[in-house]
């Protein structure tokens, strides 16, 4: 399972960082950086919630 970022959609709003800063951080350029793109089994629902919170649907999870 991996986290994908669609940089054409990302606006750097930071909801993902608010929800799960261990995995996401907005950079100075205003785009999200994925700090850890392979969440462990026990963290997936947590990461999923952060992904679902994106106001511009820029994040997705891929198996």
């Amino acid at each position: 399972m991996r986290i994908d970022v669609d940089r054409s959609r990302c606006e750097g709003l930071g909801m993902c960082e608010a929800m799960a800063h261990e995995f996401f951080e907005v950079g100075d350029d205003g785009f999200v950086v994925v700090r850890d793109d392979s969440p462990a089994e026990g963290q997936r629902s947590f990461v999923r919630a952060a992904i679902d919170s994106c106001p511009v649907s820029a994040l997705s999870l891929r198996d």
Partner: peptide, 10 residues
């Protein structure tokens, strides 16, 4: 300051 705001949120 898109990089900073969520640091303060914590």
């Amino acid at each position: 300051r898109p990089r900073d705001i969520m640091k303060f949120r914590r």
